[in-house]
Structure formats: structure tokens, C-alpha cells
Design a protein around this nucleic acid. Structure first.
Lengths: 142, 142
DNA sequence: ACCTATTAGTTGTATATACAAATATTGACG
DNA sequence: CGTCAATATTTGTATATACAACTAATAGGT
């Protein structure tokens, strides 16, 4: 399935979808050693980085809807990697000791993924691409 | 949810996912007038363009897995927009008269979408972005 | 203080896509 | 020729994400 063969490939619709699916797959491989999907892993990292962070802030950081954050948290809670405390309408998310033990492995996965990405899109070119993508994404804000 | 606010936004993982979701949403709006999702619409266009095309070729053009193509075709068949004929292990997909009647509307949606995309990523910049994305996607071939 | 509007989060449900396994047909080789 | 491998497509099931509707709680205006 060579991207450039497609008559439609020149369209941003196909390209953004195909690229996202391929990057997702690559990320899944990088995070497989800790048994987490990339989204779960990044949510856990954000929680480790800022214990007590709320679902709303997580949604902003990970660029996902609050409902998606809830679903991700449910799974991490099942795995005993986070705990949620609710006071009033605010919820705080904390990493468990089990999550803290996992930190070195998480960072290893992160390094692995960044390494793969850099190999695909080396800094000068890759950075420019990211900026361009970011600019377009920003113009698509609701 | 401003993209550039995110600590993670600099990562290709989040950017490609976020961009794809936003472009998908934009495309959904463009195709809403014909009551089809973007994927269904493009599959139908490919079939109108090349009546008798097979699922395998469609998978290549749309950069989706064959199983996904089957699912998309099932819906289009329910809507009486395509018919499938099977001879041996080959399947041929044809547009129905109802689909042919829809052609002008389909092209109007396509124009609408391309117009929106060009507004977001005007030719010089947009073309370069697409090329860069395409280059990376190609390096991710299985 | 009380009602109302807003906000935070969750739940029910839907869509888009994929992987793995099943099915069925063809081709090739002994 | 018959078996076995390769190919094309479909089916069963799973994941990732979202939207809309719901619950609960706080904040403001009168």
C-alpha cells in the first residue's frame, strides 16, 4: 500500500489519516513493553509529572475530549496505576506507587519512540513539518 | 483546546492524531449534504470513476485495509448506491443509477471540501506540507 | 439566602478503523 | 490429476475516539 501510488493521496484528508494511523502503530510498538497504548501511557506520564492534575487539564494537554479521558482513566485505574479522588465537582488524579515504579520503563519507551520518530523525520525537516501541521491544526480550532 | 498550548503538542504522535481528527471533522461537514461519511463518499467516487473496480484496488487507493473496505461497501450497498458481483474469488463493485444521479452533488461536496482545505493550507505552503507528510508516511510502509 | 446558569465529569451510544481468523477460489507442482 | 500453497474477500471481535445527554456542584445576581 504505497502512499504515493494513490490518486487520492494528494488530498490532505487521506494523508493526515494515513499518517496518523501509521504513527499510531509505531507508537504502539514503542509502548508495548509496558503493556499500555500510547494514549494510556501519555496520560500516565502527565499524571506522574503533575500529581493531582484534573481530567479537564489532561484533556487539554492530550488534545482529547473529556469523555475520552474518563475512559482512559478507567483502564489505568483497573490496572492500579492511578487513583482518582473527587471533592465537589473537581477530580484529582494521582499515580500509585506501582506507577512510580514503572517510571524508568516508561522513559525507556518514550526514548525508543522519540528515537524512531527522529529517524523518520530528522530535526531540521521534522521540526518544520511539525510546525506546519501545528499551524493548520490551530486554524481548525472550534 | 489550543494545540500549541500542549506540552505534548510538539510530538508527532499528538500532532498527527489531532490534525487527522480535525480534518476528519471538516470533511464530515463537507460531505454531510449527501449523508455520507468522507470515507464512504470517496469510496463511492472511486467506484463511479472506475466501475467494476475490486475491493483490493479500492483498499490501495483509499489507503485502508481490505476489511475496512468491506464494511464501507456494506453500508453503501444498504443505501443502494453500489452493487457487488462476485465471480470466483474476484469481486466487482459498480455504482447504481441512484449513485450516478448523485454525481453532481458529490462533486459539489468535493469542491466545498477542497475549498476549505485550500483556505487552511494555501497552495505553496499546503503543497509542501503534503509532500513532507507523504515522505514520512512512505518511510513507514510495512 | 434562593434560584438559575455555568462548569466538571461521567455514562450511553455511535463511528472509524484494524487485526486475526475463516472462507473460498485459483494456480502450481509433483 | 490431486494436493497444497497463495490470493481475494469477508466475518468476528477489538481499540480509539467522539457526541450527546446526564449528574452533580459551584458561583452570581437579585
Amino acid at each position: 500500500m504505497k502512499t504515493s501510488c494513490s490518486r487520492f493521496a494528494q488530498c490532505l484528508y487521506f494523508m493526515s489519516g494515513a499518517l496518523a494511523r501509521k504513527v499510531e502503530k509505531l507508537a504502539q510498538e514503542s509502548w508495548a513493553p509496558v503493556g499500555l497504548s500510547p494514549s494510556h501511557a501519555y496520560l500516565l506520564l502527565a499524571t506522574l509529572d503533575e500529581p493531582g492534575i484534573g481530567p479537564g487539564a489532561l484533556a487539554g494537554q492530550l488534545q482529547l475530549q473529556p469523555s475520552t479521558i474518563t475512559r482512559l482513566m478507567q483502564k489505568l485505574e483497573e490496572k492500579k496505576l492511578i487513583v482518582r479522588t473527587t471533592e465537589g465537582k473537581l477530580t484529582n488524579v494521582y499515580p500509585t506507587p506501582k506507577a512510580k515504579d514503572l517510571v524508568p520503563k516508561l522513559h525507556a519507551c518514550l526514548e525508543d519512540f522519540y528515537g524512531r520518530i527522529e529517524a523518520l523525520a530528522p530535526p531540521p525537516e521534522g521540526g518544520a513539518l511539525l510546525q506546519a501541521m501545528s499551524r493548520i491544526a490551530d486554524r481548525l480550532e472550534d
